[in-house]
């Protein structure tokens, strides 16, 4: 209650009041989720979230928080207000990352140990489909028109394009070693796939019918940092497509890329082993999880600068911000 009053007071004082949103960070080793206020950057709560929580997302209306409890072989669903566990969803073994349909249903889950993508109905809690994919499925992205779900498989080194109507794979595209994350632009004309060990981000043009064509591979170079340490993982693109942010793992940097020219403009130094990224809904801030320094870095998106570090639980992995 005190917290509420305080944040209300702060909001009233601010010149251009931004809504405070809750930031949820999954802590892979700590088995918890840390909740942070996006205005004060104070930790509000840390609650138990099952064994080895990694992928984390939230319903588009903010009503349910979903956490891949990898070692429990299920998805835990929490109330984002009370942090009570509401129920669990079947996920198949070792769920790692997932993506939610923009309507809030269903959830598409990568099962890392079983070479499957499991599709789960978030209302009936039933498994709708299991789609066999490559070895060690990880990255999950959904096209804005919801026609395709893209899964990346880390040892097969492909992006698999799954038709969301038929659950058939319609395209397989080879990328560089250990693809980690798939992110469409908001207009759906481009897809970015990061390759952790290959050290590149593959850029694909997406045709009207959803067919991908590999057009370029973005490479990274930082003076004084061994090329082997530049390992792209999390990727986020601004709504207008002008900037692409790429987390570079043990290089402890986030690359800033021009959406037009695909040139790397800058590298922002963040915490250690930077993994996943999330924007606040107004895109004012970008939040990074830093697995080895047990903290998150807050980046001012417009200034392209790190402005704050917040200590969270043990080995932060994923991050999601509640909608307005």
């Amino acid at each position: 209650m005190k917290q509420l009053l305080l944040s209300a007071a702060l909001t009233a004082l601010a010149a251009s009041p931004a809504l405070a949103n809750k930031v949820f960070v999954s802590n892979e080793r700590g088995n918890t989720v840390t909740v942070i206020d996006s205005e004060t950057w104070e930790v509000l709560e840390e609650f138990d979230a099952g064994n080895r929580p990694r992928g984390i997302t939230i319903a588009p209306d903010g009503s349910e928080l979903y956490v891949c409890a990898s070692d429990d072989d299920l998805v835990r669903v929490f109330d984002p207000e009370t942090y009570e566990e509401l129920h669990t969803l079947p996920s198949g073994p070792d769920p790692e990352l997932f993506v939610i349909h923009p309507s809030g249903n269903p959830l598409y889950i990568a099962n890392e140990d079983d070479n499957l993508v499991t599709v789960v109905d978030t209302e009936t809690h039933e498994v709708l489909a299991e789609v066999p994919v490559g070895v060690e499925p990880e990255g999950m992205g959904i096209s804005p028109n919801t026609q395709y779900v893209v899964n990346t498989s880390e040892t097969t080194n492909m992006a698999h394009f799954i038709n969301t109507e038929t659950y058939e794979i319609e395209h397989n595209l080879l990328v560089d070693q250990r693809p980690r994350y798939a992110q469409y632009t908001a207009d759906g004309t481009r897809l970015f796939v990061s390759s952790e060990i290959g050290g590149t981000v593959s850029v694909m043009d997406i045709a009207e019918d959803g067919t991908p064509t590999l057009v370029e591979k973005i490479e990274f170079e930082v003076p004084g940092v061994l090329p082997e340490w530049l390992q792209p993982v999390g990727v986020k693109v601004t709504e207008d497509g002008s900037r692409i942010f790429v987390a570079l793992g043990p290089a402890n940097r986030v690359a800033v890329i021009d959406g037009e020219s695909l040139e790397v403009l800058d590298y922002i130094i963040v915490g250690q082993r930077v993994w996943q990224l999330a924007f606040t809904p107004d895109e004012r801030y970008l939040i990074t999880t830093n697995g080895n320094s047990n903290d998150i870095t807050v980046i001012d998106v417009e200034a392209e600068e790190a402005i704050q570090t917040v200590q969270v639980g043990q080995q932060p992995w994923g991050v999601v911000v509640a909608p307005d």
Partner: peptide, 10 residues
């Protein structure tokens, strides 16, 4: 097993 899983797509 790993090669076969990849191979099925090709």
């Amino acid at each position: 097993q790993d090669n076969g899983t990849t191979g099925q797509f090709m």
